[in-house]
Simulated assay, not measured.
Amino acid sequence: MTDTNDRYRAPALDKGLDILELLAGIEGGLTQAEIAKALGRSPNEFYRMLERLARRGYVARVEGDRYALTLKMFGMAQFHAPTRRLASLATPLLRDLAERTRQANQLVVFDRGNAVVIAQQEAPGYWGISIRVGSHINLFDTGSGNVLLAFSSPERRLAMVAENSDTGAPARAIPAELEARFEIVRGRGYEVKPSAQTVGVTNLSAPVLSPSGEAIAAVTIPYLPLVDGEAAPSPEEATKALVETTAELSRFAGYGAEGETFASE
Rank of each mutant, 00 (worst) to 15 (best):
T2A: 13
D3S: 13
D3H: 11
D3V: 10
N5Q: 13
D6G: 00
R7L: 14
R7S: 13
R9V: 14
A10K: 13
A12V: 15
D14E: 15
G16L: 08
L17F: 07
L20Q: 09
L22K: 10
I26C: 03
E27N: 11
T31R: 07
Q32G: 11
A33T: 14
G40D: 04
R41A: 14
S42N: 14
P43Q: 05
E45G: 09
L53Y: 01
A54M: 10
R56I: 00
R56V: 07
V59I: 14
R61S: 14
E63V: 05
Y67S: 07
Y67A: 03
T70I: 04
F74D: 12
Q78S: 06
F79A: 04
R84P: 03
R85Q: 12
L86A: 00
S88P: 01
A90G: 03
L93N: 02
L94I: 07
D96G: 12
A98H: 02
A98L: 10
E99P: 07
T101K: 00
Q103G: 00
L107N: 04
V109S: 01
F110N: 05
F110I: 09
R112G: 04
G113K: 09
A115V: 01
V116R: 07
A119D: 10
Q120V: 01
Q121S: 13
Q121R: 06
E122W: 11
E122A: 14
E122C: 12
G128K: 01
I131R: 10
R132C: 02
H136F: 12
I137A: 01
L139V: 10
D141E: 12
N146M: 14
V147N: 00
L149D: 06
A150C: 14
F151M: 09
A159R: 13
M160C: 06
M160A: 02
E163A: 11
N164M: 10
S165Y: 09
S165V: 09
S165E: 13
T167C: 08
A171E: 10
A171L: 08
A171D: 05
A171M: 01
A173G: 01
I174S: 00
P175I: 01
I184M: 13
V185W: 02
R186Q: 11
R188E: 15
G189W: 01
Y190G: 06
Y190T: 06
E191I: 02
S195Y: 07
Q197M: 15
Q197E: 15
V199F: 15
G200Q: 04
N203T: 08
S205D: 05
A206V: 07
P207E: 00
P207S: 11
V208M: 05
S210Y: 08
S212T: 13
S212F: 05
I216M: 06
I216K: 03
A217W: 03
T220I: 01
I221N: 04
P222K: 04
Y223I: 08
L224A: 12
P225G: 03
P225N: 02
L226I: 13
V227R: 11
V227M: 11
G229L: 04
G229P: 10
E230W: 09
E230Y: 11
E230H: 12
P235I: 09
P235G: 06
E236A: 15
E236K: 13
E236R: 13
A238L: 01
T239C: 10
V243Q: 11
E244P: 04
E244L: 11
T245S: 03
T246W: 06
T246N: 05
A247N: 05
E248S: 12
S250A: 10
S250Y: 02
A253V: 02
G254L: 08
G256F: 04
A257K: 13
A257Y: 12
F262Y: 14
F262R: 05
A263H: 06
